[in-house]
Every structure is written in C-alpha cells, then in structure tokens.
C-alpha cells in the first residue's frame, strides 16, 4: 500500500505541485513556441510525455547499473581493474553527457519508428519530435531520477522513475494546453506593441505559475487522507 501511495504522490507532485514548467521553469522553449493553438499544444504535450517516459526508463537503467555510487556494474569493473576497494566508485560526473546521449538517440529512434509504422502520427507530430531532443524538461526528469539514486535508504525503483516522468509529462501537457487557451484569447486583446508575442506570453506564464503555487501542500493532505482511509 505504501508503494502505491508514494507512487501516487510522486505523480501528483510532478504533475501539479512541482509542475516542471510552472514551478521549475524547465521546458520554456516549447511552452512559449508551440502554445499558439490548443490542438498543436496538446500534440506537443503528448509527444513530450511519450519521449519523457522512454528517456526516464533508459536513464534509470543507466543510472542504477552504471552511474550511481556503488552501482553494481561499475563496481565490478572497478574491482576487476585492481583499484582500491575501500574507495566508493562514483561515476555521477558522467550523468549529463550520458543522458544527452541517451535522450538524443532515443528521440531519433522513436522518430524513425513512428515514421515507418505510424505515418499519420508522424505527420501530425511534424517538427516537434526532433525538437524534443533538446527539451530541458526531459533532461530535468533524468536528473531528478539521478538525485533519488544517490544513496540513502530509499533508492528509487523503475516504477518511481516512471511515475515521475509520466507525472511530469502530464503536468507539461496541462500547462501548455492552458497556456495555448489563454494565448488564443490574447490574440483578441489590445496588447501594447512592445509586449506583443513572447513578452506577454511570459507575463501570463508568470501569473499562471503563481496560480499553481496554490497546489503547495496538496500532496501531504492527500497522503494523510489515504492513510486514514486505509487504517479503518
């Protein structure tokens, strides 16, 4: 039961409370660039959710077996190369470059796959899929997963990583769709010339971020409610 509750909390936390876009301000480029129309924004959100899931799976595997401190594979290599066994092997310095490798090539792979087997989906994703390979929201999800594999009692499993990435993807979709809806209305407003386009969009994003601060503390309340329910 505790596992399910913690997974749920990670999901809600990534989707609403610590929304990637509106709390951490990562993934701002597609958030501003592809939020002119609701349908395109939703497509972008789906594409990001899809890629973030794949990237999280791959980077969790990579981190758990190779990059984290005391990772089994690198520890075995470390010892077999005759290093000092009292020192803990830690290849976390490689995380950034390894994640960029993994994200870029998995996006390429997914694009080829989709182009071959789902041509209509590929046409509607269009230029978004390659754009996602440089999306910082995805790198952020990978780094967040790495942070929770650094040590301590509770190392994240693959299911935690997936909950975080799917929550992040859903949160990104919510944020970009709300933003697209607002910007469709903004088209009809008399905006001062100096603020037209991305300027007013960033101001609106800031106000939206303040609104999302209202979700702070929801996770603890939900957790308490679930615990009380399960006790009875």
């Amino acid at each position: 039961m505790d596992t399910i509750v913690s997974l749920f909390l990670i999901f809600i936390g990534a989707a609403l409370i610590n929304n990637f876009v509106l709390h951490y301000f990562v993934g701002i480029c597609p958030f501003i660039g592809v939020s002119r129309r609701v349908d395109l924004a939703f497509g972008m959100g789906c594409a990001v959710t899809f890629v973030i899931g794949i990237a999280a799976t791959l980077s969790w595997t990579l981190t758990f077996y190779i990059l984290r401190p005391e990772a089994p594979l690198s520890a075995w290599l470390w010892n077999s190369m005759g290093a000092d066994p009292t020192t803990v092997v830690d290849l976390s310095i490689l995380s950034y470059i390894a994640y960029i490798f993994v994200i870029a090539s998995s996006v390429q792979f997914v694009e080829m796959y989709v182009k071959k087997f789902f041509p209509s989906l590929h046409r509607s994703f269009g230029v978004f899929l390659p754009l996602i390979s440089t999306n910082c929201a995805i790198l952020f999800a990978c780094l967040e997963i790495m942070k929770n594999l650094q040590g301590g009692d509770q190392l994240w499993g693959l299911h935690h990583a997936l909950a975080l990435s799917l929550g992040g993807g859903v949160g990104f979709t919510i944020a970009i769709v709300i933003m697209a809806g607002l910007r469709e209305e903004l088209e009809l407003c008399d905006v001062p010339k100096a603020l037209k386009g991305p300027g007013i969009a960033l101001l609106v994003a800031g106000i939206l971020a303040m609104a999302f601060m209202g979700f702070t503390g929801v996770d603890r309340g939900v957790a308490d409610a679930i615990r009380t329910l399960t006790q009875h």
Binding site: L62, A83, I93, L94, A98, F101
Partner: peptide, 22 residues
C-alpha cells in the same frame, strides 16, 4: 593502478560503449 587513472579510463570506456551502442 592509481584510482584517478582508473576513474578516467572507466569513464571514457563507459561513454565509448554507450556511444557505440547507440
């Protein structure tokens, strides 16, 4: 071998393996 040297070799080797694999 020295610990530092092994770390460098290990890092380079792992990145190389990932790159070749991808």
């Amino acid at each position: 071998m020295d610990n530092t040297l092994i770390t460098i070799l290990l890092s380079a080797g792992i990145l190389l393996v990932i790159a070749v694999l991808m």
